Computed example of a mutant assay.
Amino acid sequence: MIRFEPREPASLGRMIAVSVAAAVVALILASVPMLFAGLNVFEAYGLMVKGAFGSVFAFTEMLTRATPLILTGLAAAVAFRAKLWNIGAEGQLYAGALAAVAVGTGMVSGPSYVLIPLVVLAGALAGGLVMLGPTLLKTRLGVDEVVTTLLLNFVILLFVQMMLEGPMKDPMGMGWPQSEPILDGAALPKLMNRMRIHWGLVIALVSTLGVYFLLKRTVWGFEIRAVGENAAAAKHAGIPVTATFVRVGLLSGALAGLAGVGEVAGLKGYLTADLSPGFGYSGIVVAMLAGLSPIGVVFAALFIASIFVGADSMSRATGVSNYLADLIVAMALLCVLVSGLFLRFRVRFIGVPRSREAAE
């Protein structure tokens, strides 16, 4: 007979150790399909490391890929801390990108120091407003936010496609469904010449510090943690639960919206329907791998980004599909979930008592 007994809250060191162990186990499990594909596992992982860290270009590409993952990871981490299950970061990312393009392609004219803050603000506001609807439905009507945020991803993507085929379509785009390019004055500057890395990374790191300070050093952060631990007890203690959920929803959506701003204003320069390869969903893995820690999100995002970038390089060298990266990420999430179970509960094996008749 198996019985699960609650443990004491895990220390930070144990949570870090579990996350690292989950990542290592995911890599070990991913080696099985590599062997079936006829690859040398050590050589394949060596190619992945080289593809992500083997040169300045590879390293900056990894940081570029990590930038939206940091922001979507923060979006998930903040919401999950309050047990507001935001699965809609992908849609919020596209909403932020759409708003950034709308403002940055000529709606407002002015110098860079005016346009760039407006583009960033528009993207954050759009993402926050998208998350506001599911949050109010949860707090007012008890609607499950997992369902509403997940379905909104598809609604927003269809809306973006409609806009790119209609009023926001670039007349000079040779018929391709894409927006007009963002003005040079509204684009986020590059951090290094001849590299794609941009100031979106700085925004992501500043956001990380801001979220960390909010959660650890402010009354709002205490309220978020209290609501996440027990919303009923927090309400009894006088904490405004509904207002806390609304603030968390707005902040979570805004962070995801900033990821969209970085992709269009810092990297691509215009909006297409395939802007994101799933950054919003990968952000959930990042947040879980980080144990919902804002600082941990940065390291988890770097790990996931190195897997994606390294897998692309390994795929080109070996001919094996780069979908191996998706497999590793999925396994990492499963390992984190399983390890989280053992962090919260202790497993005890108890013998099944025999009946009196059987004993006799």
Rank of each mutant, 00 (worst) to 15 (best):
A21E: 03
T149C: 13
G291K: 06
A325E: 00
D326L: 12
L121A: 14
M172R: 09
M172H: 13
N193I: 14
G238Q: 01
F349I: 13
L115G: 00
A79T: 05
A75E: 00
V147I: 15
V119Y: 10
F279Q: 04
I203E: 07
A187S: 05
V49L: 14
V56H: 09
T72Q: 03
A44E: 02
E263G: 11
V119T: 02
L201S: 00
G51I: 04
A23C: 05
L93F: 07
L93I: 08
A273V: 10
S355C: 07
G133I: 15
F80A: 06
L39R: 11
G128W: 14
P167W: 12
K268A: 15
A75N: 03
I116D: 05
V336T: 11
L98W: 13
V211R: 07
A305N: 01
L157K: 15
L337P: 09
P171T: 05
S207Q: 04
E180R: 15
G238P: 01
A82V: 01
L39A: 11
L271K: 08
F36E: 10
V246W: 01
E165T: 09
G280H: 08
Q92M: 05
H236A: 15
N153A: 02
M314H: 03
R7Q: 10
A300K: 01
R7D: 09
G128K: 13
V202P: 02
M168P: 09
S339K: 08
S109T: 13
M331H: 12
V298D: 15
I203R: 04
V329E: 12
D184T: 11
F57A: 12
A233T: 07
V143H: 00
L333F: 06
V320M: 09
G88P: 00
I87M: 10
A76I: 05
E61V: 02
S55M: 13
L151H: 08
G260Y: 04
A99N: 06
H236V: 15
A233H: 02
A89Y: 02
G296Q: 13
L84G: 02
S282F: 13
M1Q: 07
R81D: 08
V264E: 08
V146G: 05
M48I: 08
Y212G: 12
G123Y: 11
W220Y: 10
Y94D: 03
G13L: 10
M163K: 15
L251K: 14
G200E: 02
L157N: 10
A232T: 14
N193T: 12
M172A: 14
A97G: 07
S252Q: 13
V120Q: 05
P111S: 03
A44T: 01
A305P: 02
A204T: 06
R81G: 05
F308A: 00
M168N: 11
S339N: 15
M174S: 09
L132E: 03
T135A: 08
L35R: 14
W85V: 04
G278F: 07
